Simulated assay, not measured.
Amino acid sequence: MTSTTPAAPAAPSAPAAPEAPQRRGRPAGSPLLRYLLVRFLLIFPTILILVSVVFVMLRLTGDPITAALGGRLTPDQLQERIHEAGYDRPIVVQYLDYLGSIVRGDFGTTISDNRPVTQVLLTYGTATLELVVYGMLVALLIGIPLGRIAASRRDSGGDATLRVASILAYATPVFFLGMLLKLVFSVWLGVLPVSGRASTISTLKMSREGSSTGIYLIDAISTGDGAVISDVLQHAILPAVTLGLITGGIFLRLVRTNVMGTLATGYVEAARSRGVGERRLLRKHAWRPALIPIITVIGLQTALLLSGAVLTETTFEWKGLGFQLVQYLLARDYVAVQGMVALIAVIVALTNFVVDVIAALIDPRIRY
């Protein structure tokens, strides 16, 4: 009888790897949408805080009717105007009523000239918008190229000169710089107009076209007259340079610092070790990462440009919101001042939101 050897037990098979849990994928755009939604919602508390602070600060001086017309009306007339405007009600009621009016787009009526504040904003806001755009263009055209030059020639004589110039540009008061430019280019050289947005003849030609947008360059182009276009641009040069030089100094230093920081990173050093030229390093590897902080600061500088526009418009008699704001301040018309500050708050908040959108599209890391 043959004996059979029992078969060796089969080796246990390796346990199957557990299936990786399926991740519930979120749409690729959800982080971006979530980020943008949060940034958009932050606009409303920002505007609310600014409007509330202005409301309280102006009410600390008393009611707007007494501030603007006190001494020009009899006490009975003054009380009648105060009651009609509702300034004898509790301050909380006035505040809630004012917020409700802003939501409806009603910023009140000016006291000094009895005009709807909305009409004032539409009439003079386009002039300020035009000046701010000019100033931003000058700032970018000056600050970004010179900042790149300073970064590529670090610690050279040219770099030191540019840094000193940027500090001087930022530290110089707007009104002093404006008067200095007027003295040189308008009085001494006589090559540029001293004030205003256009000559009287050009203004009449633009008004005859009947398609007034309030932005003189667009209105001048619509006339098809080269002399009118040239006149409008000549009037814009000095105010734009005055406003743009200050912000241009900030951009110059910011671009220099960020480009230098990017050039010192590991991946740029690795590209340099592979023989990539400095110009290509700056253009292909260092510039885009350094662009993110610059775009962010552009939004922050909008507030600086708007505040600088007040002095610039006054210096050059550029009749925009800044120029008109000074007139209403002198007249103690706090209703008009309140409306203009509210509009500026809205513009700054929306500009910052647009900048956040652009920065998030350029750099995906910002979305998370």
Rank of each mutant, 00 (worst) to 15 (best):
P12Y: 14
P21D: 11
R23C: 03
V38T: 09
L42H: 07
L48C: 13
V51F: 14
V56L: 13
T61L: 12
P64L: 14
A67S: 15
A68T: 15
L69Q: 13
G70F: 11
L73P: 02
T74Q: 04
Q77N: 04
H83A: 14
H83D: 08
Y87C: 09
R89I: 08
L96I: 08
G105N: 14
D106V: 11
I111F: 14
R115G: 00
Q119W: 07
Q119H: 11
T128P: 10
T128G: 14
V132L: 14
V133S: 08
Y134H: 08
M136G: 09
I142D: 00
P145T: 07
R148D: 04
D155L: 03
G158E: 02
V164T: 15
I167K: 00
A169H: 06
K182R: 11
V184F: 09
S186E: 06
V187C: 04
P193D: 07
T203K: 02
L204I: 08
Y216G: 01
L217D: 00
D219E: 04
A227F: 04
I229P: 15
I229A: 11
S230Q: 06
L233F: 12
V241Y: 02
L245K: 01
F251L: 15
F251P: 13
L254H: 09
G261Y: 06
T265N: 04
V268P: 05
G277E: 01
E278R: 15
A286T: 00
R288L: 02
A290T: 09
I298G: 15
I298C: 15
G299S: 10
L300H: 01
T302C: 07
T302L: 15
T302D: 03
D333L: 15
I344P: 00
A345S: 15
V346M: 13
V346H: 14
L350I: 15
N352H: 07
I362T: 05
D363W: 00
